[in-house]
Amino acid sequence: MALQDKYKGLTDAATAAGVSDLQVREQDGVLYIDGTAPSGAVKDQLWTKYGEIDPNFAGGDVVMNVKVAMDAAVTKVKVTTESSNLNIRKGPGTDQPIVGKAAHGETITLVSKSNDQWWLVRTDDGEEGYAYAQYLSAE
C-alpha cells in the first residue's frame, strides 16, 4: 500500500481527468497503472505529475501504461517526429525493410491499429506499411 500512497497524487489525477478503465495494482514492489486517457494532453499531464513525484523516473517502482483513446473514425494521422522523416516499414519492427518515408508534419492515412506500437499507414503516394505509433498523432 505504500506505493499507492506515494503515487496517490498521480492516481487521483488520473481519476479526476477521466481516465477510463483505470487499474492500479501493486505487485512485487511495482505499481502498475493502466488506463485510457481521453486525450493526449491528459496523458502528458499524468506523466508530468509522475515526474513531480519521482523526478527523472529513476525509482523504478511504477509502470504507467496509459493509452490515449482514439476515435475509431480517425483515419488521418499526422507525422510528429522531432524533425526527421518517418520510416514506413514492410512489417512491424525496426528490423523490417523500409518501404517508404513520410515527411515530418505530413498527414497520412491510418489503415489499421491492430498492433499497439506499429500502425499500418498509407501515404498519399500510395506507399503502405508500418510506422512507429509514437510518432503519429490523431488529427
Binding site: 506523466w47 527523472n56 529513476a58 499497439d116 509514437q134
Partner: peptide, 26 residues
C-alpha cells in the same frame, strides 16, 4: 536529454514490462 526522457519512458512503459530500471544520466 531531460526533454527526451518522458517520451522514451512513455514508449517503454507502454510495452508492458515488469519494471523499468532507469539508470540513465539525465
Amino acid at each position: 536529454a531531460k526533454a527526451s526522457l518522458p517520451k522514451l519512458m512513455m514508449a517503454l512503459n507502454s510495452l508492458q514490462p515488469k519494471k523499468v530500471d532507469n539508470k540513465l544520466t539525465v
